[in-house]
Design a protein around this nucleic acid. Structure first.
Length: 422
RNA sequence: GGAGAGGUGCCGGAGUGGUCGAACGGGGCGGUCUCGAAAACCGUUGUGCCUUCGGGUACCCAGGGUUCGAAUCCCUGCCUCUCCGCCA
């Protein structure tokens, strides 16, 4: 969420941002409501002051033993007026808040212009795509051949777009999850096991609501949602708090299952476990101040990338262009891993600086010792990493001609010494 | 699921419906004293909004209600704790 004051004072910049993103928001409505609210608050406060003075006078009179029935009768009208004005202010504020929640974040100056993923900017790449002396098999074929991925039975118990790993496949998921969390701990992240179900307030705090409810699963009859990403429960951990500046940056790493309806993705990635309704992920979250947040974004991205290096998976990093950027993101690096069967790079981590956008919704602040005043924190997150897609990448990049798959060195200890899946 | 208790400032903990944004204690910060420290003493110590920058206004879990006036009374919700039952 943007500050109303910022919108009032930087109308042109806000409109420019909307144009660059190819997004829309009711800037006119916000400006009009803000001004209306300002005037009504002033009027209401004045009436309240009058009422408070009169009430005090009544208290004094009563103490002096005087008859107050007349004064009390006179106050009735004013009391009713104050009540009505107050209700008007609340209504305006609710309306304004609603509109503000639908304005996307401002863009960092380094975000490249562009409309589609084609316009994303390559930052760097690591490793070379493997050259096989045979046609590369897709993960769903390898998984089936090896008996470690069972989409059919997953569909039986849940439906289409669900995947289930079995045997060495399941072990590989657990290995990755442990490896990622161990690496995160070593890099200074605090490990958390947060709830997988979150309420509407949390979903609003990180920006999934009110605009993107269609892509999430809700729990019938309760104010609960299945979290679409670990970002939600973990970032919301410090909602409403004023943090001690010395504690920053806070760094968390947590495993969550992630649930997405994939509404609007019909026909895309329909086979295997590339795009499923439930997948596993280790999420990295940072809470820091404005001064350090872009340095923290670089190191967060490096933390995610290093995992791929240690496994030995070829990948690249791109900066998302304005049109491809998420609603609340000020800047995002996508880390993309090489997928041989598609002969392309696919997203495996998305590292984002939200600056104050989430913090303002969350009311997450820190106390600046220089000023003694609370300031909004900057929040960041990125996958470290998406486990399902990592399984895909490992199966495909480390496959042999006979369909067996070599376990990457770094994961062998986590696989109980297993060196190959065959 | 059943029965009960409770939610107040950084923490503990008061608070007859009328200067209560809130006693008192602890903590923090600043100061006096000291070579320094401790102790003692003094002062200070929440957040948002509006402002004609003098102030004003709101917030005692959240949302409603009663009242001229609510931290204090009423209703609803959420959360915490205790006991019983059930359960991974």
């Amino acid at each position: 969420m943007l500050d109303v004051k910022f919108i009032v004072e930087n109308e042109a910049a806000v409109r420019r941002m909307l144009a660059e993103r190819g997004a829309e928001a009711d800037v006119d409505g916000i400006l009009a409501l803000a001004e209306k609210r300002r005037k009504l608050v002033f009027e209401t406060d004045e009436k309240r002051a009058e009422q408070n003075r009169a009430s005090e006078a009544i208290a004094e009179s009563k103490k002096a033993g005087e008859d107050t029935t007349e004064a009390v009768a006179e106050m009735k009208a004013l009391a009713a007026e104050v009540k009505e004005l107050g209700a008007g202010v609340s209504e305006l504020e609710a309306e304004l808040h609603e509109k503000l929640l639908e304005v996307p974040n401002i863009l960092h100056e380094s975000v490249p212009p562009g409309e589609t993923p084609e316009d994303n900017e390559l930052v760097r790449s690591w490793g070379d795509p493997p050259k096989f002396g045979f046609p590369a098999r897709a993960h769903y074929d390898l998984g089936e051949m090896l008996g470690i991925l069972d989409v059919e039975r997953a569909a039986r118990v849940a439906g289409s777009r669900f995947a289930m790993t079995v045997g060495a496949g399941a072990r590989l998921e657990r290995a990755l999850l442990s490896f990622f969390l161990d690496e995160a701990s070593a890099a200074g992240y605090t490990e958390v096991f947060a709830p997988f179900l979150v309420n509407s307030a949390a979903m609003t705090g990180t920006g999934q609501l009110p605009k993107f409810g269609f892509d999430m699963y809700g729990v019938d009859g309760e104010d609960l949602w299945l979290n679409p990403t670990g970002e939600v429960p973990i970032t919301n951990l410090h909602a409403g708090e004023i943090l001690d500046g010395e504690r920053l940056p806070l760094k968390y790493a947590g495993y969550t299952a992630c649930f997405r309806r994939e509404a609007g993705a019909h026909g895309r990635d329909t086979r295997g476990m590339m795009r499923v309704h439930q997948f596993n992920k280790v999420e990295l979250v940072k809470i820091t101040d404005a001064e350090s947040s872009y340095d923290e974004l670089e190191s967060l991205t490096a933390d995610a990338e290093r995992l791929l290096c240690k496994i030995g998976l070829p990948h690249r990093v791109v900066t998302l262009c304005a049109g491809d950027l998420g609603f609340g993101a000020a800047k995002t690096y996508d880390v993309e891993v090489w997928i041989p069967s598609e002969e392309t790079y696919r997203e495996i981590s998305s590292c984002t600086n939200y600056e104050e956008f989430q913090a303002r919704r969350l009311q997450a602040r820190w106390r600046n010792p220089r000023t003694g005043k609370p300031e909004l924190v900057h929040t960041l997150n990125g996958s470290g990493l998406a486990i399902g897609r990592c399984v895909i990448a490992i199966l495909e990049n480390f496959q042999n001609a006979d369909g067996s798959v070599k376990i990457p060195e770094a994961l062998i200890p986590y696989m109980g010494g297993m060196k190959r899946i065959e």
